[in-house]
Write a protein that binds this DNA or RNA. Sequence first.
DNA 1: ACTATAAGGTTTGATATCGAACCAAATGGA
DNA 2: TCCATTTGGTTCGATATCAAACCTTATAGT
Lengths: 156, 156
Amino acid sequence: MPSKLTKPPSTAEAADLYFSLFLEIGIIAQLSGNRFQRVMPFGLTMAQFSLLNHCVRLGDGWTPMRLAAAFQVTKGTMTNTLQKLEAKGFIRVDPDATDARSKRIFLTPSGRSAREAALKALEPELAQLPAAFPPALAAEILPTLERLRIWLDTNR
Amino acid sequence: MPSKLTKPPSTAEAADLYFSLFLEIGIIAQLSGNRFQRVMPFGLTMAQFSLLNHCVRLGDGWTPMRLAAAFQVTKGTMTNTLQKLEAKGFIRVDPDATDARSKRIFLTPSGRSAREAALKALEPELAQLPAAFPPALAAEILPTLERLRIWLDTNR
DNA sequence: ACTATAAGGTTTGATATCGAACCAAATGGA
DNA sequence: TCCATTTGGTTCGATATCAAACCTTATAGT
């Protein structure tokens, strides 16, 4: 193997490493998404729940574009997600007072309680996790993943 | 906040942590998948490329079911992926000699060179990564992610 | 002021994936 | 030997997502 850090792993080795990483991440995303979906009430998808959660934790009144940027999805995808949530009565879409092109997203009371219900439904699932995968591990890798995500975002 | 490790982070805090983790992972999967897709030749998807790559690195002759298990996708999804690859002439599907229900997947020469071409096409993309996200970081979190994936797999 | 360009959202067409239903072949008890 | 169950694969219907085209409103340069 290469001596030390003179040259980090060869290009090919590094590529393999990155592929493995992205593959693993892809699989986890797939598996966790499906699992979440199966226990969620109201036919909430992961994207929909994440949006409700976001509004509760960081406050509502965001524009669709800012939400799309926060979740790193296209505007079209966000339109779809918002339409689904509005149809379920979980959010309210107001016009933006100062920009006629734009809109503002607010949680409805029933959106708030839907999020509560979803959390409750997820609890039993999540309760099994810590034994095999302690929160400390999650906390440990989270910053690294954030770093990767930010790179992917900026170097689009 | 809870004193120390007397009780690991409260259930709610742990849940938040896990949500953040899964959200981050979902975003990375999405972003990286799209990016890969955009530079890949022959209209290869990430799934298709991963399969070619798998066959080169671990040898071919696998059954569809074993491949589905390796990539953690449903049998239906694997059927689809294999059909696409076969249509492109990148794999050959032989009957299994000892089990009439089953099949065996082999790379064709053009499949092998398609994988080479894909690697080449990916190179410039990957070349930019190490500066912002060194391979060592990837190597560091990979085992942890594997652990998480395995849990998700077994506790399906 | 005007016009060109940018920015916020929606719509459209394509596609990868899932879960469930289905078929065919293998396996294992009685 | 036969029937019930399991296992490998395919097909089907639904859906979340993307990219690209489009419309409308804002912004900036002249």
